[in-house]
Design a protein around this nucleic acid. Structure first.
Lengths: 164, 164
DNA sequence: CGATTTTAGTTTGGCATCAAACCAACTTTG
DNA sequence: CAAAGTTGGTTTGATGCCAAACTAAAATCG
């Protein structure tokens, strides 16, 4: 969380040492919002590094998972489920289609919508990413601890649901 | 969290109704990582709306707060404390200086670094934003509950610290 | 039926972010 | 002390996101 030792610093410190000043976070350190952000960003970064190793991005994982769970889903539904604007999805889907992971079909009874589904190759990639995600999740599990986990998740869900 | 009623949908549904299909999230709904993201994004959005009302952004709040707590901080230290790349900070600081909220001073013993500090106007804006943030925080408090709060925050900190 | 409104998806413009390349000033070292 | 390395900050190019404008296709309504 970006802190160090180094008491006063501030003054010269010319010689060697090159002290890292200890940054103050004040009451921020007790705020729920602040800690939520810190935890989420650290977690996201860790997962990013993991997915990077298998050549995908966290966003692709979310998208593939949702398509896998909901074959035939439309782009608008997907954007809602994903919490992203539908316009953000256009290039993502394009990319996935281009790379042969996702298939778009026009439907006869409504020629505006696409139905998205995974190709065999997409399913294979998703399986790989899922394994990777499970490792990540297991690490989180260990950090939180079996005993605390249910209450912790419940609170997260409560926040997501109730924070206007 | 983008769910709805609507059981099967999927088939025609031609008439009126225009059912929203109920999206499946599978086991995702039990994953810590997933719920952390959901909670953080909802919280961030709520705070964004609040700060929007007083004409600032969450990012500006973080920056002003850190400068206020650590007068004389350099841009690099600030970027570390803030968890953003130092290059992201360049335009932010420029904007704050232009608007007269932050002052940059060159230092004599090292002419590369800037020392950042708040102007009186900056302190005033920060105070306003802090009031706004406190309202937000109080809402989170109520959602989490007094009893659960310490353990919850501790777990968030543990995650931020330990997730490699 | 034809006009109006809604809906699915794309385009465009802007913002925040990161990473890599860069410059200038400082430190280290032979 | 001069060359080599490091550090603070900016620039540039790419990505991901949103919001608003837009197009085409349905749905609704008079």
């Amino acid at each position: 969380m970006a802190g160090g030792k180094g008491r006063r610093s501030r003054r010269r410190e010319k010689g060697s040492e090159a002290f890292v000043r200890s940054i103050k976070f004040g009451r921020l350190t007790h705020w729920i919002g602040f800690n939520l952000r810190m935890a989420q960003e650290a977690t996201f970064a860790a997962f990013s590094r993991r997915s990077y190793k298998i050549g995908e991005s966290p966003g692709r994982f979310a998208t593939l998972t949702l398509i896998g769970l909901n074959p035939g889903i439309s782009q608008t539904e997907l954007s809602l489920a994903n919490g992203r604007d539908k316009s953000s999805l256009t290039p993502v889907v394009e990319d996935l289609v281009r790379r042969g992971l996702v298939e778009r079909r026009r439907v006869d009874h409504d020629r505006r919508t696409y139905q998205l589904s995974l190709t065999p190759s997409g399913r294979k990639t998703l399986a790989e990413m899922t394994r990777c995600a499970r490792l990540h999740e297991r690490k989180l599990d260990r950090i939180v601890g079996r005993k605390n986990r249910p209450g912790f998740v419940r609170l997260l869900q409560k926040i997501a649901a109730e924070i206007e």
